[in-house]
Amino acid sequence: MKKGGFALNPLVSIRGLHKSFGSLKVLKDVSLEVYPGEKAVIIGPSGSGKSTLLRCVNWLERPDSGEVAIDGKVLNEKTTDINKVRAEVGMVFQRFNLFPHRTALENVALAPRLALKHPREEAERKARRLLKQVGLEEKADAYPSQLSGGQQQRVAIARALAMDPKVMLFDEVTSALDPELVYEVLEAMKRLADEGMTMLIVTHEVRFGEEVGDRLIFMDDGQIVEQGNPRELLRDPKHERTQAFLKRVLW
C-alpha cells in the first residue's frame, strides 16, 4: 500500500543472489529492493537463508553470483570502496558483538574516530547523545560485561547509529535475550523507525514485524516465497508454506 509513496530509487537493491556453503544452497536467486524510509521485515524458519541474505547486503558474506547495490553503488565492482559502503550501512547482531575491552562510550565512538576521522571530543559528544537516545546515558563508562543483554544490545544499536547510516540491518537482535529484556530493544527499534530510518529487519518476532514493518517478506528454503503488507500477509497468506509457517509461530 505504501510502496507508491516511496522515492523511486531503491536504497538497497539485491538482484539474483545465489550463495552456497559447500553443497548446501542457502540463497537461490533472491531479489529484493528496499526504498528510502521503508521498514522491510524478513521472517521465515531457521535455515531459510534470511540471515545470509542480510549479511550479503554489507558484504560480510560474498554471494556466489548476483548483484548488491547500496544507494546506487554496486558492491560487486572492484572500484567500490567496501569500507565506505559499510560505513553507510549499520548492522546490529544477534549476539551484540560489543568490544569487551572498551566502555559503552568507546564502543560507540570508536568507528567514527577511526573510519570517519572525527576528533575524539566530537565523537564522544555524539556517542553520549546516542546513548541517551537509547536510554543508557548513565552507562557510558560501563564495560559490556557490566551490562545486561538488553543494555548491550541498545549500546550496539547506538554504535551502529554513530556512523549516520543510510540503512540499518537487524539480524535477529532479540533472539539471544531473556524474554523480559526483549521489550526494551524493540522499543529502541520502534523509536528509530518512527524517526524515518530505513530498516531491513530479520526477526522471529512476527507481531513486531506487523507493527513496525511496511512490508513483510516470508523466506523459506533460500527463496522469497511471498511478500506484502504485513497485516494482509498475516491475515491472508497466499502460499501454503507461508500458511504452515504462520500457523506454527502464531498459535
Binding site: N58, L60, N83, K84, R86, A87, E88, V89, G90, M91, F93, R95, N97, L98, F99, L110, A111, L114, A115, L116, A156, R159, A160, M163
Partner: peptide, 15 residues
C-alpha cells in the same frame, strides 16, 4: 563476531 562487528562499522582490516 568481533571482527565482523568492526568490519560492518567500516573499519579496514588494519584498524
Amino acid at each position: 563476531g568481533q571482527s565482523e562487528a568492526a568490519r560492518a562499522l567500516g573499519l579496514n582490516s588494519t584498524q
